[in-house]
Amino acid sequence: MASTVLASLTVPWISTAHRMDVLRCADPPEGYIVTTAFVLALDGLGRTLLTRVDRPGRGWEVPGGHLDPGETPVGAAARELAEEAGLRVAAERLTLFGGQRITLLDMPPADYRYPRRTFQAFFTVRLPDPGVPTRPDPGSECDAAEWVEPAEVAARCPGAAWQALHAALLG
């Protein structure tokens, strides 16, 4: 499958000139390094699993985070899903759905820790039954996890760059 650009935008958490393309794709874009992995988990009722990050300026999000050294993107997605939401799913059940392709247009600041061309991978998993109550692992940066209806996802995560991916997933 060729990639499809669902949205192009800039985000306030990248301080240098950049472009973020939200892509629907089956493979990471060539020439981009996967730095983070997220999971859009849907249950049998069509609800999405969200987690609340317990840090100033954060809030409700989809589970995900940085790859550990030597970790695969799908492995990181499964690990983050378990840590942040308490949902344990075998990595083989996760499917790459798309992601956020970030291209820096200027030289990054000295303290910028990512390559100039990165990809934030978004995986999906669909559970056949209603999602059971979940709880983040102790020590996680998250303090809550909930299954929420599609309209509630938009209300809890306003302005999230991945909203276009979520909408495409719901069809």
Rank of each mutant, 00 (worst) to 15 (best):
D68Q: 08
A161R: 06
A41R: 12
A37L: 08
P133L: 02
W13Q: 06
A26H: 11
G171M: 00
D137S: 14
P28S: 04
A90D: 15
F122K: 06
A91G: 00
L87M: 08
A2K: 13
A145C: 07
R126M: 04
A41G: 08
M107I: 07
Y32S: 03
D111T: 11
I102R: 04
E146P: 00
C25M: 08
L104A: 11
G171D: 13
E92P: 06
R101N: 02
F119V: 01
H166T: 15
P133I: 12
D143H: 11
L127D: 12
P12H: 14
R116Y: 02
L40K: 00
R93P: 01
A77Y: 09
F123M: 11
R117T: 13
L49V: 10
I14D: 03
L170D: 06
V153Q: 08
S8V: 09
E30F: 05
R24S: 15
V89H: 09
L105C: 10
P56G: 03
V125N: 08
A37V: 14
D143T: 12
P12K: 09
C142H: 00
G139H: 08
M20N: 11
V74H: 06
A41C: 12
A76H: 07
A154R: 15
P138Y: 00
R117F: 07
L50I: 06
L104P: 00
V22E: 04
A37E: 03
V74E: 15
D68R: 10
L170P: 08
H166F: 12
P28F: 06
R79E: 12
V34T: 15
G99E: 04
A76L: 04
V132R: 14
L49R: 05
